[in-house]
Design a protein around this nucleic acid. Structure first.
Length: 954
RNA sequence: GCCGACGUGGCGGAAUUGGUAGACGCGCUGGAUUCAAAAUCCAGUUCUGGCAACAGAGUGUGGGUUCGAUUCCCACCGUCGGUACCA
């Protein structure tokens, strides 16, 4: 009887479904384990072979944990709000909810085809009112809280108001954007609107005028990570900076905790480094410079206060608010010109020409607080308004950018750090001895920084300060397909939270999804929805994609709860995510926002853990091979197109356009010999009729108008393609659909093959070539149960020593490797074991039973079938994962490699229980040793019991 | 530039704390079976020399520590990912 994966897989999937095998309870005696996948955005293209990589890995681990006695939460859902569905709606008029549901149905069908053990009863969709009710609810909590820096957590805004009423804001240490201080009396004297504005400066969700990445073509604001090189990631449209009134989340309040708590999670170094980088903590000093003939003071931030005596000028960002006030009359014109020039430059140009030095003197002078020296004030593009204070003291001797600027504009350079003791040290390194620096002269840089900081604080001209690169997160999108804000504005424009009883605030129906005028959200066109009877108007922006995805893992714990985002019992049972599997592309976006929301909920006492994701595995991407034809850019010999083979490309012709070719036409796809033969060139022309009249220069001839004309010596009529490894994407025609592979080999085979490709963290190109090896393995396993004639071979009887050894070696290896997520070597271990059992002709039930359970996480359908064949009750997952017995692996004798001076020269068997002394004595008598030590003296014998013996001679 | 990861046969990749480098799979070569093919099975397969036994070289390059280094340290080269005028 043959192994027929399709029948087996259908049978068991149906069984699992009917018996709700993977439905799990929030109430169990077993310890909990939470295995989470990053939920997908359901795009129209469906899943390709790369998507399931992480899902397979997490499914294996979830099944392994289930077999090991854990109550495992392993859910799946959809990140269903997003721009593509809205773009599609604009083009086609199909409501995003409809197209999203269609896509979800397709995803679901594809995922079902892979045999995952998800508990689908807990499925979440971020676009469902029952879900986004709680996204809105959490937003309102953020709106109603501020961050108390002294308490180190979030507190209700009511407490802040109470403190303002008692003592104003002078003593309040909170994360805020409030600039003025006020007394209690002043607070009480403020109008309702003024008070509301002040409170806005403290709220964790707040509204402010901010510069945003505005994309005219898409009619919306984009997140930083949606902009690449000044162009929108989607569509590649130009992006400009525009000031808009926007909702923001005060993630900066949590910067320090987000940074420190990275030490408590089990994530990869590179991911932690990315987050640290993004948070960008730097220690330094805030310092005020007085301005000559002015009341104004310029506030700067520096990490090198020690170089203060080398500060020979100052630079303000062009957008700095003081620029207007400080510019002197005789400089008005040049400053005006410069500002005009800066304004004319798009973000893209600024980024492209980073190294170009531009700037302008504004006529004013600042006073160095340490030596009273007057130093000129400039403005320059290289100083960014968004970082620090938007102003710097320039120390050209110790900062490359300042130096370039000073050299270009002929500004004074004073050396203040002597680095002659540190050859090879860069300008930026904080080492050296201070010179030309008054009281600092002679000190090491490290000490000088401390000394200067002390002096700054003593003089009252500034403070030690910590600065972060992390910016508050922009939380407004001018889109339809997102969560509406549960916020209304009264006649004065004061923002009011909707009552919780009014949640969810559902998206109103629309017929046209285009943005409204002035870059407003499409929602603004539903005047009847926006205008409320009490005179209030609704917020028309919607929340960004990361809103719904910042907390979804909590919803799975109690997905149908209508009274809370999840019940406290459920949350206290499941606690946090033990294992999170997903791509690195979310390293600084999703993972940062989720941690922030989680910490806020923790402060509120709503979740028991400080961090949401204990362990994180980043699966690599499965890439595609892109096959290109090269098209000569110049026309040749009167023909419109001239396709060149790879050979021609290698001849040094460089003027090519690359045309991706559909992989179906390519022979030996993905290999060195990828090419189109005459038939496939014809297919290619049918597919791309625009190249009908093209000339194809093949290996040794010309193909044109359906005819191949060989050169004199030609035998080769193929057109070579050039392959590159890249994204698997529709536009490269290289997408491999898992359904096709599964159709042919079965999903157990597909699962094991994806794992067998290599370590999960690694990116690698998809290549179906070697899947046969895994397929062969499964058939070999099957052949332990049935022979070709269909005779059932499984027998009772005691296992032999060798059989036990083969089994237990596999158990040991697989158990160990699963724990460290080395699933590729697990598959190898299975292969070794099955080969050995076949060699031993072992069909014994005692052995096969354990082997089947061992394999269950990897090939769940097949193992269910085999489990049944062994006469067991269905649901292999209810049994327990086998443990290895070291006794079966013990040998009577151990084979030792014998090395002379570290170089292995032979091997010898010794009794397994031989002592170090016995081994040492026996080793020197060996023939190999005599041969290699001939004429030399044995200096030392190094014996590592069980490992090796090394004999040192000279 | 900075931060992080990595570099092993023809290919994907093994080698858990330094201890027989190349497990397992693909591919390739030879053989068995077959009218033939597919499938299956057996043997071989790091490179160089040799019929062979065997010998030499070998984990990006150069150096170091060690009885012994793919593994640890230093410098360099290369690939990938992130980030970018962050004061």
């Amino acid at each position: 009887m043959e192994y027929n994966p399709r029948n087996i897989e259908h049978k068991w999937r149906k069984y699992w479904d009917e018996h709700k095998i993977y439905q799990i309870s929030n109430d169990s005696d077993r310890p909990k384990y939470y295995v989470l996948d990053m939920f997908p955005y359901p795009s129209g293209a469906g899943l390709h072979v790369g998507h399931p990589l992480g899902y397979i890995a997490s499914d294996i681990f979830a099944r392994y944990k289930r077999l090991s006695g854990f109550n495992v939460l392993h859910p799946m859902g959809y990140d269903a709000f997003g721009l593509p569905a809205e773009q599609y709606a604009i083009q086609s008029g199909v409501h995003p909810a409809v197209s999203t549901d269609q896509n979800i149905a397709k995803y679901r069908q594809q995922m079902d085809n892979l045999g995952f053990s998800f508990d689908w009863d807990r499925e979440v969709k971020t676009s469902e009112p029952g879900y986004y009710k709680w996204t809105q609810w959490i937003f309102l909590q953020l709106f109603e809280h501020f961050y108390d820096l002294e308490a180190g957590n979030a507190l209700p805004i009511g407490e802040l108001i109470a403190r303002f009423e008692k003592e104003g804001n002078r003593s309040v240490k909170a994360a805020n954007g409030q600039e003025e201080t006020f007394t209690a009396d002043k607070w009480k004297a403020m109008s309702a609107k003024q008070q509301a504005e002040v409170l806005m400066n403290y709220r964790l969700a707040y509204r402010r005028t901010s510069y945003v990445n505005w994309c005219e073509a898409l009619g919306t604001v984009l997140a930083n990570d949606e902009v690449k090189d000044g162009l929108s990631e989607r569509g590649g449209h130009p992006v400009e900076r525009r000031a808009m009134l926007q909702w923001s989340l005060r993630i900066t309040a949590y910067a320090e905790r987000l940074l420190n708590d990275l030490d408590t999670v089990n994530w990869s170094d590179s991911l932690k480094a990315q987050q640290r980088n993004w948070i960008g903590r730097s220690e330094g000093a805030q310092l005020f410079f007085e301005v000559k003939d002015s009341e104004e003071k310029i506030e700067i931030f520096t990490t090198r206060p020690d170089t203060i005596f080398g500060a020979t000028y100052m630079v303000l960002a062009p957008e700095h608010p003081l620029v207007d006030d400080l510019t002197t009359d005789d400089c008005l014109e040049q400053v005006g010109d410069y500002l005009k020039y800066v304004g004319s430059r798009t973000e893209r140009e600024r980024m492209a020409e980073v190294k170009e030095v531009t700037g302008c003197f504004i006529g004013a002078y600042a006073i160095n607080p340490f030596n009273g020296k007057e130093i000129p004030i400039w403005i320059g593009e290289y100083v960014l308004m968004e970082y620090g204070t938007g102003a710097i003291m320039a120390v050209p001797s110790d900062d490359e950018r300042d130096q370039a600027f000073a050299k270009k504009f002929g500004l004074e350079i004073i050396d203040v750090v002597d680095k002659t003791d540190y050859p090879g040290a860069g300008l930026h390194d904080k080492i050296g001895k201070m010179i030309n620096s008054d009281f600092l002269t002679g000190m090491e840089v490290k000490d000088a920084i401390q000394a200067t900081n002390d002096k700054i604080e003593e003089k009252g001209i500034g403070k030690r300060r910590i600065n972060y690169k992390l910016r508050d997160a922009n939380f407004s999108r001018q889109r339809y397909w997102g969560e509406p804000f549960p916020i209304t504005y009264d006649e004065q424009g004061i923002a009011h939270a909707n009552a919780v009883s009014e949640l969810p605030l559902e998206l109103p129906e629309l017929e046209d999804f285009k943005p409204a005028s002035g870059g407003q959200s499409p929602l603004a066109r539903r005047e009847d929805w926006v205008q409320l009877p009490n005179g209030h108007r609704r917020e028309t922006d919607t929340m960004p994609g990361f809103a719904g995805s910042s907390w979804y893992f909590l919803r799975y714990m109690d997905a149908h709860n209508t009274d809370a985002f999840a019940s406290q019992e459920a949350i206290n049972y499941w606690q946090d995510v033990d294992l999170y599997v997903g791509g690195t592309e979310h390293a600084v976006g999703h993972l940062m926002y989720s941690r922030f929301w989680h910490k806020f909920l923790y402060d509120k006492g709503l979740v028991p853990t400080n961090e949401p994701f204990k362990k994180l595995i980043n699966q690599g991407m499965i890439q595609g091979v892109i096959e290109y034809l090269y098209l000569m850019k110049e026309k040749r010999e009167g023909y419109n197109h001239f396709m060149c083979s790879r050979m021609a490309a290698q001849k040094g012709i460089t003027e090519f356009a690359k045309i991706p070719v559909h992989i179906d036409f390519v022979q030996a796809y993905g290999s060195d010999e990828s090419h189109l033969n005459v038939d496939s060139i014809k297919k290619f022309i049918d597919w791309r009729p625009d190249y009908t009249d093209a000339i194809f220069e093949c290996g040794n001839g010309i193909f044109h108008n359906g005819v191949f004309t060989p050169n004199a010596d030609a035998t080769d009529s193929t057109l070579y393609t050039h392959s590159e490894v890249g994204k698997m994407s529709k536009r490269y025609y290289n997408v491999v659909n898992p359904d096709d592979v599964i159709e042919r080999y079965g999903s157990d085979c597909f699962r094991m093959y994806e794992m067998f490709l290599g370590p999960i963290e690694q990116s690698k190109p998809w290549n179906t070539n070697s899947i046969d090896g895994v397929s062969k393995f499964l058939r070999k396993l099957w052949s332990l149960f049935y022979d070709e004639k269909g005779n059932f071979l499984v027998a009772e009887g005691e296992a032999s020593k060798e059989e036990l050894k083969a089994l237990h070696a596999a158990i040991k290896k697989v158990r160990n490797d699963i724990e460290r997520f080395a699933f590729n070597t697990c598959v190898s271990a299975f292969m070794v074991c099955v080969n050995e059992l076949r060699r031993l002709k072992c069909h014994k039930k005692v052995i096969l039973k354990d082997l089947v359970v061992l394999l269950a996480p990897f090939a769940p359908h097949l193992t269910e079938e085999l489990w049944e064949l062994l006469g067991e009750q269905p649901s292999v997952h209810l049994s327990s994962y086998p443990e290895h017995n070291e006794d079966f692996l013990k040998e009577d004798s151990t084979t030792y490699p014998i090395a002379i001076n570290g170089k292995t020269r032979g091997k010898a068997d010794f009794p397994a229980d031989a002592s170090r002394e016995d081994l040492s004595a026996a080793a020197v008598d060996l023939d190999v040793v005599k041969k290699w030590a001939d004429g030399k003296t044995i200096r030392k014998v190094i014996v590592v019991p069980g490992r090796m013996i090394n004999i040192v001679v000279s």
